[in-house]
Design a binder for these strands. Structure first.
Lengths: 175, 175
DNA sequence: TGACGATTACTAGCCAGGCTAGCGAAATGG
DNA sequence: CCATTTCGCTAGCCTGGCTAGTAATCGTCA
């Protein structure tokens, strides 16, 4: 472990008091976390919907782009909410003209959810530019440092996911 | 700009199809974002409180550690909720024994919020180990790559914060 | 010093977005 | 072909936000 270099008090602020690099790194992580949250809140507010609705929209569009179909059930599982709540969510998003419910071709119980042109263009308009600029920023990382950056983020994710004994499941729609 | 290398469709998936480094980097960012959100949800659920309450708790404790006093008003501003909602939040967190309301020494209208020993030890117990391991992970980043990592995260944060024309304000308590 | 606007926290009452329970219709397995 | 399971829906509840309005206190200025 070789943890402590300054004080024995495990309270965050003193751990890396004489390790400015480490402190700055974690500070940058925290700031990213915060502004990211704010950004999503802003965007969903700008589209007159809540964060969950925005996530749902992105999920449906992403699934369509990779050629997969989405049922109400998939959405519920991905969003981590009940199917009943997902019914309400679909009510909202179909009323607003972002999503469409269609009968499943071969399962009479199921509903297939698709996005409208309007939804796709709105998402593209709101997120496309930012996405492009994030890619630019990634390109600006020196080639020789890219592996280190990725490994750092992956290690953080592994640590965070494992903490609390939760399997690092990936949120894929069913095939 | 020199954006496109593959297709002109600005839909995210094709931008960096032949730039595996860039794609992997952004993928790592997205994963971090997701597991971080999940982690906070888990921890707050484990403490029988919601995300806002957890943020409030961390804020109060952090402020105390840097010797600052916190009023209900500061908390409301930091959390981005109304003072009325903050009243309810304080009701919850005082009822659960995490925070204490005390009269402000020189302003009869104000309330000074402090954390209990119980709250501090619970937060330390739940977050301390993870915090330590995040510091370890940061230490594992090769010294020569640390600047690049920090610059990457800062650039992302700048971009995200600026998008939507919001000033990159820092959430400090009043002095 | 006394009056008055500003500030602080609170109460009352509303609403959005989650939840569980339970239902009918369709699919599936024995 | 009947029993069980799955799917999405409705009904009704609860939490955690919100706004509006209030009482107490503070600060300022005539």
């Amino acid at each position: 472990m070789s943890l402590m270099t300054t004080r024995a008090i495990p309270d965050g602020h003193f751990w890396y008091a004489n390790e400015p690099d480490v402190r700055d790194l974690l500070q940058a992580v925290r700031r990213f976390r915060r502004v990211d949250e704010e950004m999503r809140r802003r965007i969903s507010a700008g589209m007159d919907m809540n964060l969950t609705d925005l996530r749902a929209l992105q999920y449906v569009i992403a699934a369509e782009e990779s050629g997969e179909t989405v049922q109400q059930h998939d959405l519920a599982r991905y969003l981590g909410i009940s199917t009943a709540s997902t019914t309400k969510l679909l009510d909202r998003l179909t009323a607003s003209g972002h999503l469409v419910r269609a009968p499943h071709p071969r399962d009479g119980r199921s509903v297939v959810v698709t996005s409208t042109d309007h939804a796709r263009s709105e998402i593209r308009e709101r997120l496309g530019r930012m996405h492009a600029r994030m890619a630019e920023i990634a390109r600006d990382v020196p080639v020789e440092a890219r592996a280190a950056v990725r490994e750092f983020l992956d290690a953080l994710s592994d640590q965070i996911a494992e903490e609390g004994h939760v399997a690092p499941l990936s949120p894929r729609p069913h095939g």
